[in-house]
Each structure stands twice: as C-alpha cells, then as structure tokens.
C-alpha cells in the first residue's frame, strides 16, 4: 500500500483514514455527485442496469467478506438472497410490518440461515464447504417452494416501499435508495475488514491452522463470516424484492450464485473496490452482450439452429471468468493498483 508521493502519516488518525489526502476527498465528493446525478444522464435501460448493479454489489460485498477475506468459497449466495426476499415479503404480507423493519429483520433472519449452513465448517473446509453451500442453495429453494404461505410457484407481491410521501416505485427513485444502501454497505464492509474479526478472517484465509495456533477462534470467526455474508445477501434479496415488488424463486437461479463468485474473481478476491469493479464490469458487459452480441449471434447461427441470443450471455460470462483466471487471477483491482502506482510517479519511471 504505497502512499502518494510526499504524503506521510504523522498521526494515528491519518493512518486509519480511508480518504487520506485532499485529492482523495475531492475525488470522492466528485464521484458521489456524479453517482447521484447519474439518473439524469442515463436512459431507462441503463438505469435498470445500474439498479441491478447496486443490488448485486451488496450481495457481492457479503460474499467478498466470506470468500475474499475469510477464504470460504460459497456457492449459495442467490439462495440466501431468495431467503431474504421471501422472508421480507412474508413479514410484509403476513407479519403486518412495513417494508423497512421487515427488510432489517429479513436480513438478520437470513443471517441465521447462513449460520446453519456455516456450522459444518467446524468439520469440513475448502471445497467440501463449497459443496455444502451449493446444497444450501437448492435446499433453501426447496423449502421456500414447500411452505404453502410463501406460494413459491406463484410468488409473493408487496407494495412499493415508501418513506413519508416519497414512493420508490420508479427506476429513477429506486436508484437513489439503492445507491444510498450501497454506499453505507461499502463503508461498513471497508470497516469490518479493519476490525478484529476482519483481521481474523484474513488470518484464517491465509492459513487456518496457523491462525488457530495463534489464538484465533477459527470456528467462531468462520461462523461470523457466514453470518455477515448471509446478512448482506438477505439485504440484497430484500432490495430486489422492493425493486421488482415481487418475490419468485425463478429470480434466484443457481447460476446467479455462480456469477456472484465470478464478480469476485473478475474484480479481484479480497478487496472491496475490486468487488465493486467486478460487478460493474460484468453487469455492464452482459448488458452490452445482450444489446449487441446477441442479435449478431442470432444472425450468424443458421436458421432453426437454436437460440443463440439466450445462450450467449452465460457463454461469454463463463469465458470472461476463465480468461481472467488464466491471464489475470488477481483481477481488475490488481490492474488498478498497477495503474495507480504508475500515475503517482508520473512522469518518472520509478
């Protein structure tokens, strides 16, 4: 972590600051202003893309804590999102709560479900755990489908959420809500990483046996990581519910769990900024694929030979993730770091 040239930390407070210099502050404020004026430049199509990017950033940040920082691969993020969405919808429809308390309760309820599937991490680790979370996805969807009140095959509807007289029923309004949540969750994540649990996660990721020898309660911190990851997923699921005002299991396919892991790989495991980059890159790319590549593929395929337009999405997603794994396993974030160290020294070579 090199500092910009000529910058030194004289105080502990400066060392802990996320935004260190005036340039940082300027850039951050500019970025936030740009972010919140974004709806006025974007067309409706891209606004929808931006909203989904926001929802997936929340889910991916949770997975980043579990997989990127704590080293536990999870293939169940979409399942946890489904749990969050359905529990939120059930609390609104049957519990008589309004959307906001229901969202919080649902997020923590999903965290509890995450704990259940985290318990096997006491005995198993590595890819065995990945397979347990894979099972978690299917078991959660199975349970949702078989609770009659949740109407898994029909889905549950809720009214669009509102604060006071502002109703979040348009893409435009919801954008502000989602981006607000994204900023809060990003700051929280950034800070979780720097607390005692965050350092314990990193120790467990790097070498769990060594971490245990040094007095880290591995099982406890793994459970905490699972809990936090599932809370994020529940929150993302609840937001998804608020956005499309509908909870249905078809919105949480298994492949979404896989792509969520793909966001982390493309962005770079173990970095908050990388996670956001990964989500933005892949979602924007998939929208471009859908808009430009899919008609092309349909055109190129011989007539009556299948549905190239639908398949090209997963195909290119998979290809991009594989290419990143082979050629840049440290992800976009690593490239960004290289770029940063270059421009900080510019115009000198070193």
């Amino acid at each position: 972590m090199g500092l910009p040239c000529g910058t030194f930390n004289a105080e502990y407070r400066e060392d802990m600051a996320i935004l260190r210099t005036r340039t940082h502050w300027g850039l951050a404020i500019a970025a936030i202003v740009l972010l919140f004026t974004l709806p006025s430049y974007l067309s409706n199509t891209w606004l929808i893309v931006a909203n989904f990017i926001g929802i997936w950033i929340v889910a991916a940040l949770g997975l980043s804590l579990l997989t990127g920082y704590c080293g536990q691969i999870s293939l169940g993020q979409a399942g946890f999102m489904a749990a969050g969405a359905f529990s939120c919808a059930a609390l609104v429809n049957y519990g008589g709560l309004s959307y906001w308390p229901a969202l919080i309760v649902a997020a923590f309820f999903t965290g509890g479900i995450g704990l259940i599937f985290g318990i096997p991490s006491l005995r198993v680790k590595g890819f065995y755990l990945a397979i347990i979370t894979l099972a978690a996805h299917f078991i959660i969807l199975f349970v949702i489908l078989h609770i009659p009140a949740l109407q898994g095959t029909m889905g549950l509807n809720i009214a669009p959420p509102h604060i006071g007289s502002v109703t979040f029923d348009s893409h435009h309004n919801f954008f502000y809500l989602i981006m607000g949540v994204v900023i809060i969750m990003t700051i929280i994540t950034k800070n979780i990483v720097r607390t005692k649990p965050g350092r314990a996660f990193i120790a467990i990721r790097d070498n769990d046996l060594a971490a245990e020898m040094m007095g880290v309660d591995v099982f406890r911190y793994k459970l905490i990581a699972f809990f936090i990851c599932a809370v994020y997923a529940g929150l993302a699921g609840g937001l998804m519910l608020g956005y499309i005002t509908h909870a249905h299991i078809d919105e949480y396919p298994f492949m979404d769990s896989v792509w969520c892991l793909g966001f982390l790989i493309v962005g770079g495991l173990g970095s908050v900024a990388g996670t956001i980059m990964g989500v933005v890159f892949l979602r924007v790319f998939s929208q471009l694929t859908y808009m430009y590549l899919a008609p092309l593929a349909t055109l190129l395929m011989p007539a009556g030979m299948g549905t190239a337009g639908f398949g090209i999405g997963p195909f290119t997603y998979g290809l991009i993730i594989i290419l990143f794994l082979i050629f840049e396993p440290r992800g976009l974030y690593h490239r960004w770091e290289i770029f940063k160290s270059w421009y900080r020294l510019w115009p000198f070579a070193y």
């Binding site: 691969i73 395929m301 190239a308 398949g311 998979g318 290809l319 594989i322």
Partner: peptide, 26 residues
Amino acid sequence: PLIAPVMVTIALLGLIQGLCIMVWGD
C-alpha cells in the same frame, strides 16, 4: 493454487450451458 482450476470448472459450468443453449436451445 487449487482454487483457480476449481473456479475454472465453475465458470465452465456456465460456459457449456450457454453453448448448449446457443446451439440446441430451441
């Protein structure tokens, strides 16, 4: 590290599915 090839197989899951949908999806 082993995580890389395993992730590749996970991505391959999507890639092959996409391929099958593209060619035989009707």
